[in-house]
């Protein structure tokens, strides 16, 4: 594609909150175009790099997954603070998706059901401070931070992600072609 001869590479960060990594798999689905992408971009925090924190000066932050727990909120805030453009990728980030199907239940009832209904009747809801606590509901990310762009799909196809990224990097308003526009 028409890679701009930028003085520095575009920095991209990615993260999965409450999601299935399907959107990240789609990112890998751009296949050999990954090579073209790394010509013009480098990855900051991402499951692809294993960098643990999103550093300052990131151009594009891609967020997959919904907000399910306290850690998700910390990661999202870190991305919002460090990314020029924050992008909600996939159904979960955009409207809660599959994780949000728990919203019809009280989170306390869910925890009790999962951890307390042991045969001996003892409560086993874990209290380890290392474990992030669940939010009362699952939230789409735009309920908590401002989001600049949305790429729908479950997951969005590799083509959709490629079209979006090349549009954005190329300075065009990102726009998906009809066959790339999917909520499923």
């Amino acid at each position: 594609m028409n890679a701009p001869s930028a003085p520095r590479k575009i920095r991209i960060a990615t993260a999965t909150l409450g999601g299935c990594f399907g959107c990240h798999m789609s990112l890998l689905d751009i296949d050999e175009r990954l090579l073209a992408l790394v010509e013009i971009a480098e990855f900051d925090r991402s499951p692809l790099t294993d960098i643990k924190h999103c550093g300052p000066g990131v151009d594009i932050g891609l967020i997959e997954g919904a907000l399910c727990n306290a850690e998700n909120v910390h990661v999202l805030r870190e991305f919002r603070a460090n990314c020029k453009f924050l992008v909600a990728v996939g159904a979960c980030a955009i409207n809660g998706g599959l994780p949000a199907q728990r919203n019809r239940f009280d989170v306390g009832d869910i925890l009790k059901k999962v951890y307390s209904d042991a045969p001996d009747g003892r409560s086993r809801v874990p209290n380890d401070p290392e474990l992030p606590l669940l939010l009362d509901k699952v939230y789409p990310i735009h309920d908590v931070v401002r989001v600049d762009y949305f790429i729908p799909g479950c997951p969005p196809s590799g083509d959709a992600l490629w079209k979006f990224l090349t549009d954005l990097i190329g300075g065009r308003t990102p726009r998906l072609d009809y066959p790339q526009f999917h909520f499923d």
């Binding site: 306390g108 809801v125 606590l133 908590v144």
Partner: peptide, 13 residues
Amino acid sequence: LDAALARARELAG
């Protein structure tokens, strides 16, 4: 957001 954790806090003690 902190209040949204209250129920889980209570259950986890």
